[in-house]
Computed example of a mutant assay.
Amino acid sequence: MKTVKVKDTAIPALGLGTWRLSGEVCRDIVKAALEEGWTHLDTAAIYQNEAAVGTGLRSASVDRGAIFVTTKVWYDDLDPERMIRACEESLDRLGLDYVDLYLIHWPNPKVPLKESIAGLMELKERGWIRAAGVSNFPSRMAAEAQEHAEGELVANQVEYHPFLSQKEVLEVCRGTGMALTAYSPIARGQVSEAQVIRDIAKKHGRTESQVALRWLIQQEGVVAIPKTSQRRRLAENLGALDFELTEAEMEEISALGSREGRQTNPDWSPTWD
């Protein structure tokens, strides 16, 4: 598996997203993914599926040390003491001694960012998390978080796909030493409707999803976490690793993006770039 190296952390370039997966469906797709060669799992406390992810991980014939597990703390638990309890509860549900990456899921203006980052650093000091990061942080806030962390954050997970430009966030991530992890990387299936992507897919003998994922992971410092509940999609998505897009094709796909392409924008969202 290709990895994105950030400091001493190697993040697999493709990860299995698990938002809205639950119970046996979640458990079974996690197990299947690991047995088909996936090495990166992404979950969160708010998804209410950490236990299923953990069960799927333990039921697969893989070495825990070879699997990169990411989970996230919800914005109600960003006070350092509450964050420590929340992380302990996540570890209990996952059935793990540590997670490889722990993210602040959404910023919370009611909790000073400096305090939240201090909580992450305490968890790293305890050995409960191997690396720390943030999620859904616009560029200025991501830069501020990295400053408070004295450069220790390794990732900012945000919505990113061909229809949503994240130029500012990507520039800050690269400039401050963070990977950008792209959720909703195939725009909830809408990439198949773009003629540009369809033409490029036909040229390469690939699917539109593979082209969108390749466009993401071919960019410097970008990780993608597509979600699926269908086993046949696991091999398809891994196929994004074994071909390349030309520079012209990369530019054609990039030209589809704008600030209006955002699909995830809940009431508690920060002010986006």
Rank of each mutant, 00 (worst) to 15 (best):
M1V: 14
D8W: 11
A10L: 10
L14Y: 09
L14M: 07
G15R: 00
W19Y: 15
S22P: 04
G23I: 03
E24A: 14
K31G: 10
E35G: 03
G37W: 12
G37Q: 08
D42K: 02
A44R: 09
I46F: 14
I46S: 07
Y47C: 04
N49A: 11
N49Q: 11
E50Q: 11
G56T: 11
S61M: 07
S61N: 11
F68V: 09
F68M: 05
V69L: 15
T70G: 07
Y75S: 10
Y75I: 10
D76E: 13
L78C: 03
L78R: 02
P80H: 08
M83L: 08
A86I: 05
L91T: 10
L94I: 10
D97S: 12
L101N: 11
I104W: 11
H105N: 05
P107Y: 13
P109C: 07
K110L: 14
V111S: 00
V111A: 01
S116P: 10
G119F: 15
M121S: 10
K124Q: 14
R126G: 12
R130K: 15
A131Y: 14
A131W: 13
G133D: 05
G133C: 09
G133T: 11
G133P: 02
P138S: 11
A142R: 02
A143G: 12
E147P: 00
E147Q: 12
E147C: 05
E152I: 09
N156P: 03
Q157C: 03
H161V: 04
F163Y: 08
Q166K: 06
L170D: 00
L170M: 09
E171T: 07
T176R: 15
M178A: 03
M178I: 07
A179D: 01
A182I: 01
S184L: 12
A187M: 05
R188K: 14
R188A: 12
V196K: 04
D199W: 10
G205I: 02
V211Y: 04
L213I: 01
L213Y: 06
R214G: 02
Q218F: 15
V222H: 02
V222N: 01
A224M: 07
K227P: 01
K227W: 03
K227V: 02
T228E: 08
Q230T: 11
R232G: 01
R233M: 12
R233E: 06
N237H: 13
L238I: 05
G239R: 01
L241V: 04
L245S: 02
E252Q: 15
I253C: 03
S254Q: 12
G257Q: 00
G261R: 02
G261I: 05
T264A: 13
S269Q: 14
